[in-house]
Amino acid sequence: MIDFDYVRANDVGDALSQITKHQAAKFIAGGTNLIDLMKEDVEQPTRLIDITGLPLNEIHETQTGGLKIGALVPNSDLAYDERITKRYPLLSSANLAGASPQLRNMASTGGNLLQRTRCLYFYDTATPCNKRRPGSGCGAAEGFNRMNAILGWSKSCIAVHPSDMCVALSALDAVVNVAGPKGDRAIKSTDFHRLPGDTPEIDTNLARDEIITAIELPSEEFRRHYSYLKIRDRLSYAFALVSVAAALKIEAGAIKSARLALGGVAHKPWRAPDAEQSLEGKQPDRKAFVQAADIILQGAVGFAHNRFKIELARRAIVRALEQAAAGTPQSQSVKVIV
């Protein structure tokens, strides 16, 4: 862990000017991921800019009928906020599937988006990793890669994004509001995280001198037909091998619209519009769900230890869609899968 200094930002403008001035600085909110990475010398910021004092910790209605979640709203406040549990239960459920109550109490909404991969090689400075040290090689591709990607990976990186919340945000077509030196802008959550390509050291399309201020949820809520199904190596407190956010609108016995996003399989939450379109107009039955699963998993290629994820994802997609269609979403407190 390197020597660093610590300052506080008073408001968004102050935060932006401080991050611009100090090239090796990083923002810190809950710190649940950053501090771990600093201890292991994976992250080495020489300055931490504490943003927890910024006025970004509230949830507001938007004019378009959605909700705007401040970037500093703690994960647990978000998960249990009545507006979220009633109107966007998929987001609440995904949130509660992640981490532990202690971590959710500390972790911020914006920070959740910026979690870094749990790839074993990224975490271990004694091994190569293109994401941690560009050009050093990918330790995972021919190493232990059970947790790694099956979709969207590149020769330089097969890491996966570890968040559960982001999978739900992706499925809900949420929008990430950011502020930067050139002003404010909005990034679709589906465009927020990126695929590794030749630059796996860059996780997201957020510029270094920008800050997340809020997440906007559009008006389409999927109150009734949704499920977040997370498959992991133990029944709680483990990163997803595969997770599925499924949301359906069903009218007159047919699917009117569908959302499907996968976690634990790629460098970003994985969406496939053609898979969702394939469900539209269909009866919500197993046959349709299997077809959608086949489409979203097209092109999936695994490695020595994670090929099982392809078939596991297929089955999890079908089950999550079944749960969503039946209106019996996966419970995150009773771990039994129905």
């Binding site: 749990r118 074993l120 271990d124 004694a126 091994t127 133990r234 709680s236 407190y237 483990a238």
Partner: peptide, 17 residues
């Protein structure tokens, strides 16, 4: 080298298990 050298990746049962 042992690779999963932390309690996030070296799994022991949690309460739910």
């Amino acid at each position: 080298r042992f690779m999963n050298h932390n309690l996030a990746e070296y799994h022991v049962p949690v309460h739910a298990d």
